[in-house]
C-alpha cells in the first residue's frame, strides 16, 4: 500500500522539507545539512543566551518554525518522531553560542533527554556553558513515579516563546533557565485524537480507531493515548481535557491564564475555535481570567486529527515576555 503523502522518498522527507523551509524563510533562518540543523539567520548573537530546541520531526511548525528573533536560536529536527542524535544538537549549540551560554529546551522523552544530555556533555567539553530545561506539561500521564515521567507537549511552545523573549532582552543563562522552568511548572496540557497519523517510513496508521471512537490523553508521537472513549460532543471533549488540567493545577477565582488550543495537524480551524469558545466559557464560569490566547496548529502529529488544550498560569512578567516582539516562521508579532 502506497503511503498517501506529498513526499518523494520516505527516507528523504525531513531533509527535503527542511530545505524547503530554509528557502521559504531565508530572511529568518539558515539551514545547515551536515549535520542537519536550523539556525537563526543572524546567529550567533554576541552576549545573548542561545536557545536550542529539537526533537523528532512531524510536529511542525515546532521547532524550526519557532527559530528567529525573540524565540529560538536553533532547532534540531530528528527523523520523523525520533529524537535527533547528539551531533546535530552539538553543532546547533556551537552555532548559537554567543558567549553567554546556551539553554537546551528538551521535551521529556527518554530519547530526547539522553541525546541532549550527550550533546550538552560534548559542548561543555568544548567550553560552552549549557543548561537544560526539560518540559513535562502533559497531565495525561498519571502515576509519573512509575513511568518515564510526564511528556513534554504543547507547553513547550510557551516555554520557547517566553524564554526566548527573556534571552532577547538580555537575561543571563540562569535567568532564562529560571523563567523557562517557571513557565513549564505553570503549564498543563492534555490532548485527544480523532484519527491516527501515518509515519512515512512506517506506512501504516499509528493506531486504529473505530468510526465512533477517540483516544484521550494522546501524546504527540502517534503513540496511543491513555483511554479510548466513544465520540462525544465538542463541549464534553473540551471538559475531558480541561478537568484533569484544572485538577492537577487548580486556579483560584481571579487568577489569570493563557489558554492555548492546539491542533494536532489535521483538525480544521473551525473546530479548534469552536473548542476554544467552550473552553473560554468554562474558565469564565470558574472566575479564571483568560489573559492571553493562542489557537492553531503549533505542535502537531503529522496529519493527526485532534487537539490539545494547555493552560499556563501566567503572571505579569510572563505576560510582558509573551507580548514581546517575535519574528519566526510560525509565530510573529511586534515586528
Amino acid at each position: 500500500m502506497p503511503v498517501k503523502k506529498i513526499i518523494n522518498d520516505p527516507k528523504r522527507v525531513v531533509d527535503e522539507s527542511v530545505a524547503g523551509f530554509g528557502r521559504a524563510h531565508a530572511d529568518i533562518v539558515r539551514v545547515e545539512f551536515d549535520p542537519i540543523h536550523v539556525v537563526r539567520a543572524d546567529a550567533p548573537i554576541a552576549g545573548k543566551v542561545g536557545l536550542v530546541s529539537g526533537g523528532g520531526s512531524g510536529h511542525e511548525p515546532l521547532h524550526a518554525g519557532f527559530v528567529g528573533f525573540g524565540m529560538l536560536d536553533a532547532a534540531v529536527p530528528g527523523a520523523v518522531f525520533t529524537s535527533p542524535t547528539p551531533d546535530p544538537i552539538l553543532a546547533a549549540t556551537k552555532a548559537v553560542d554567543g558567549g553567554a551560554g546556551v539553554l537546551h529546551i528538551v521535551k521529556n522523552y527518554t530519547g530526547d533527554v539522553l541525546n541532549f544530555e550527550t550533546a550538552a556533555d560534548l559542548a561543555a567539553a568544548d567550553g560552552i556553558e549549557v543548561r537544560a530545561v526539560v518540559t513535562n506539561d502533559d497531565v495525561a500521564v498519571k502515576d509519573s513515579l512509575y513511568t518515564a515521567g510526564r511528556r513534554g507537549v504543547a507547553g513547550t511552545v510557551l516555554v520557547e516563546k517566553i524564554a526566548g523573549a527573556a534571552a532577547e532582552r538580555g537575561d543571563s543563562l540562569d535567568e532564562v533557565a529560571a523563567i523557562a522552568e517557571r513557565v513549564n511548572a505553570n503549564a498543563r496540557s492534555m490532548g485527544l485524537a480523532l484519527t491516527p497519523c501515518i509515519v512515512p517510513h512506517a506506512g501504516e496508521p499509528s493506531f486504529t480507531l473505530a468510526e465512533d471512537e477517540i483516544e484521550i490523553g494522546i501524546g504527540i508521537h502517534g503513540e496511543p493515548g491513555r483511554e479510548r472513549v466513544k465520540l462525544e460532543p465538542a463541549d464534553r471533549l473540551v471538559e475531558r481535557l480541561l478537568d484533569p488540567i484544572l485538577e492537577d493545577l487548580p486556579y483560584a477565582s481571579g487568577e489569570r491564564t493563557l489558554l492555548f488550543v492546539n491542533g494536532m495537524g489535521g483538525t480544521p480551524l473551525v473546530e479548534l475555535y469552536l473548542a476554544y469558545g467552550h473552553a473560554a466559557s468554562l474558565l469564565a464560569d470558574r472566575g479564571i481570567e483568560v489573559a492571553r490566547s493562542l489557537v492553531g496548529n503549533y505542535i502537531t502529529s503529522l496529519e493527526m486529527q485532534g487537539m490539545s488544550i494547555t493552560l499556563l498560569k501566567i503572571d505579569d512578567e510572563m505576560i510582558e515576555l509573551w507580548d514581546a516582539p517575535v519574528q519566526t516562521a510560525a509565530l510573529r508579532w511586534g515586528r
Binding site: G78, T82, S83, T85, T110, G111, N115, E117
Partner: peptide
C-alpha cells in the same frame, strides 16, 4: 550518531 530516539544512546 545515527539512531537517535531512546535506542540510539
Amino acid at each position: 550518531s545515527t539512531v537517535g530516539g531512546a535506542a540510539g544512546p
